[in-house]
Design a protein around this nucleic acid. Structure first.
Lengths: 203, 203, 203, 203
DNA sequence: TATGAATGAGTTTTCATTCAT
DNA sequence: CATGAATGAAAACTCATTCAT
């Protein structure tokens, strides 16, 4: 007899609206009233589902990382070799940066900037980055070993490649018109292969 | 008879204060009040020298790009070969990201995020990126030719490396604790060398 | 379930408060704070119902012209002859200027001055004036024809009489102590009658 | 040896600049900085010559009334009969309203609105109006007597005609596009003549 | 759950005025 | 006389949040 809770759906609507406003109007203009308008809801209702604005941002970060992980898992399931698994990662990550969902990419960049000094955002962002780093480092180590190389360079390589990915999101969002089309995934993979190829062999 | 103008100095003081507040408190908290406090000036005076807050941001962008250019010119003067010139560029650019001036780096990342939706910022940011891209592409082409390779990969390579640099600023600013120390410059140079080494020869 | 809207009532309260502040303190002092105080509301609430101060002014212009029109319609319904209809107009218009609602009169004068350079105000003010001019010209033409005269002078006469009315508002608001009491309506009517009486007959 | 004072000239430059800014930008925007810019002087210098902004307004009122008086005196010197003197007055006054110096006319209207609640302005404005009223009443009385009529209607007639003049300034400034061209002076004179012609004779 | 009015602290910006030079 | 930097109070407007309905 009682009304069915629609909280989960509402929270998602709100988070999605926030994502869109963030990407299309920037952090400054992503006000509760703007989010409410985008979601076709009222400010009061937003505060019924999220007690503070920061909470929406937190949920958005979770959503974005979850979406990426899902995509990677999907591609991963079809990969057999270390090289294929590495490629799955790069493609899952960079497909976003090369046009698949520019709003999510822009939002991620804005979140990254907010992370610099907003404590809670920083924590979540840094956790996500740390997870990525571990994951990528593992994939690289496997690939190195598979190629008969030492895995010692995996850590620096992972950090550098993660930088490349984050940076390509930034440039795709704020200077797309000056960048070559779809350069990132291919070049990154080539770079890895050549880097590894010339790495000293594991004696 | 008339009072001596101190506008240039004041504008610089204000711009520097803005840089510091931006880096230390984020864009949201970089209010005119906060800038005034940081510069030990009054809000009214800020507006006497800059008619809008956006104007300060514009000046900051100019300042930051000028500083980088100066540093590169300096290192460049001592470089003889294409390889040395390339190294000069990477070092000039990444020295910033590896501890030399973390405030400027953080400010640059925040500007990059602002560029996503603030028209004037975007224009200036994109111009700066386009300049970098041309410069880096030129340096890479020279290096490739010098190594007896085709220069055709210079463009994609430049875009990728620029992404790496921008991304390393982002990660240095928002997730430094998870990143290896001083990984970027060395790894990037190594990557370039190996990439070029395995590039097909120019027939 | 949802809260009942009181926007219409609030907008009217705010508009009325604006009218009073305008009349009693002048345009300069008619700040949002002052309006809020007069209406016993908060400044934030004023901006909840009107997005800008100009919007309140626009609403006030509409209100004032509507009130005048209603008064004229009321007197008009009892008028039978062209002369009576003309008198109804003059009385409806000048009653305002002779004590009935000095606040509305003063506000109208201030609006007239604002119209000189505030584009939107000018448009609305000029529209109101154009309406009055057409109306008065029509009434005068009827009266002239009824008196067996040519109607050709109606246009200039209407413009002149409208000037008289606007001017009497001005003087009633800013120099009442030097003006005779209740001079306007009577003198204006007498003037019209004598002017028309000596107008050449329509052959 | 000492520098010659240019105070009088400076005060006039400032007053004229104020007139122009008032007419072209309205009261709200007639700031000291705007006046300074219009006069090509500095804000500090304005305050050297006038201690407050109100003082400039006072000087402007004086200037405007003086200019009008001078014009009237000029025309008056050529007038022989009461009718000619009356015509001289109407022309001196309405020439302003019909295109000769629209900036001065607009400024006068704005001053009239400010007079409603700014005490000092009101005093000066009301004094000017009282002077006009006395003058016009005298001219009308002379004309009435000259025509063999009682002068008793002169007071109400003067008040009405002064209203017409003030109102025509208002309409010329804020709704010129809807008004007939050069209607005022001619119609006003005709009105006076016909009004007086039908006035009962002085027994 | 949902609405939308309401608040109050905060934001950028303006401006008359002062004053050192 | 003249400049132009500097101030401080006040302006319009914004917004996260609360709350009555």
């Amino acid at each position: 007899m009682s009304r069915k809770s629609n909280t989960q759906q509402r929270r998602q609507e709100i988070t999605t609206a926030f994502l869109r406003v963030l990407a299309n109007q920037g952090y400054e203009k992503a006000t509760i009233q703007a989010i409410a308008k985008e979601a076709a809801l009222t400010p009061g209702l937003i505060h019924y589902h999220f007690s503070t604005k920061a909470e929406i941002l937190v949920e958005l970060i979770t959503t974005l990382t979850t979406v990426f992980e899902a995509r990677f898992e999907d591609l991963l399931s079809r990969a057999k070799t270390p090289h294929e698994r590495l490629r799955a990662y790069v493609e899952a990550r960079l497909a976003k940066g090369e046009g698949e969902n520019p709003e999510a990419v822009a939002a991620w960049v804005i979140i990254g900037a907010e992370a610099i000094k907003q404590e809670e955002v920083r924590t979540l962002y840094a956790q996500a980055i740390a997870r990525e780093l571990r994951l990528l480092q593992g994939l690289l180590a496997d690939y190195l070993l598979d190629q008969g190389k030492k895995e010692s360079s995996a850590r620096h390589l992972a950090a550098t490649l993660l930088s490349t990915m984050e940076g390509s999101f930034q440039l795709a969002s704020a200077a797309a018109e000056h960048m070559p089309k779809r350069y990132a995934a291919k070049t990154v993979l080539l770079m890895i292969e050549r880097f590894v190829a010339l790495e000293p062999a594991n004696k």
